[in-house]
Write a protein that binds this DNA or RNA. Sequence first.
DNA 1: GTCTATAAGTCGATAGAC
DNA 2: GTCTATCGACTTATAGAC
Lengths: 192, 192
Amino acid sequence: MAKKDKSRRTEILEKAAHLFHKRGYAATSIRDIAREMGMESASLYNHIKSKQEILQAFLIPLAKQYTKSIHEINTAPLTSIQKLERIIASQVRITIENTDGVSLIPNEWVHLDGDALSEFIEMRNEYEQVFKAIFKEAINDGFIRPVNIEIASFSILSTLRWLYSWYSKNKNINTLELEKELVTNLIGGLKT
Amino acid sequence: MAKKDKSRRTEILEKAAHLFHKRGYAATSIRDIAREMGMESASLYNHIKSKQEILQAFLIPLAKQYTKSIHEINTAPLTSIQKLERIIASQVRITIENTDGVSLIPNEWVHLDGDALSEFIEMRNEYEQVFKAIFKEAINDGFIRPVNIEIASFSILSTLRWLYSWYSKNKNINTLELEKELVTNLIGGLKT
DNA sequence: GTCTATAAGTCGATAGAC
DNA sequence: GTCTATCGACTTATAGAC
């Protein structure tokens, strides 16, 4: 019973994320999600609390996953340049595993309400701060040329942020090749 | 009279684009735009035809500007690598000149109606096609290493697509430095 | 757990007074 | 060119029958 409802809920969440991905959170109605499920909108509320809850169900766990991942990599016994490579690989994997969910990160977070909004922003800022710190370390260690840290970080994170969009249209690529190619393109050119 | 109305209309368009940038087209109401103008929503319709018209007033001219720019660069007497550098510089300039307008390109185009939607998609596809062709040329000419064209193009265009977001928070940067730094980061590492 | 019905509010856009 | 008033459609969410 609980098991069956859980998978039904998951089905709703997945269909909702897909619609949010295609048209955005604000332009997707509860009725749109219900139609996709083949039920009336009122029936959805037996599985979810609100439309807002769906958005939070994706963005908060994902933000935690990114934060946890970058901290694990940062505290591992790796060189700074190895850390950067691992971070890129990690982001590629999270994007491939949950493309629709990740698609909500760049823009739809603005529609989070209350505590979820501030929680998300805090985790996002922390992630970028750690990333930039590692990047700075890689410059100090002599792995990377002394480029503008703000611009270079933004540039790398932009590609990773947009990966969901590219991957949606190129799903048949080999994950390892994609990881390798991105590491080379994003970091290779910055090496000393 | 026509002159005064034109500047009033421009003011509305600019405020609308700014709101669309912050919250998205769907989540921004005509009443929100009116409030920003200090007038009632009904009064807006003396200056604009519809909410949709505002979106089109930004996206269609911008798409034309990008398309025109890449064609001018492509037909100029330049090497393929010089063309890529010029394209990056051109995108930086368009983004800085019209940050709110450019912010609508990555996601809000999905809310275009009818002919404007197909027009936009066609121009966008054309732009990417020309970009990739120049990129391929640069590989064939021996300027750039034989990387995966799809991934490398996507990576460069992602950074340029997200520039509006970064620039919104870092407006005090020197334009020329930004252009130079991005050319180095995005292309420097791909050179043979 | 799904349905019908509906509450209560917001949406884009128009009519018509001034 | 701005206002008040309003239309009709749509929004999220709930109540209660089955």
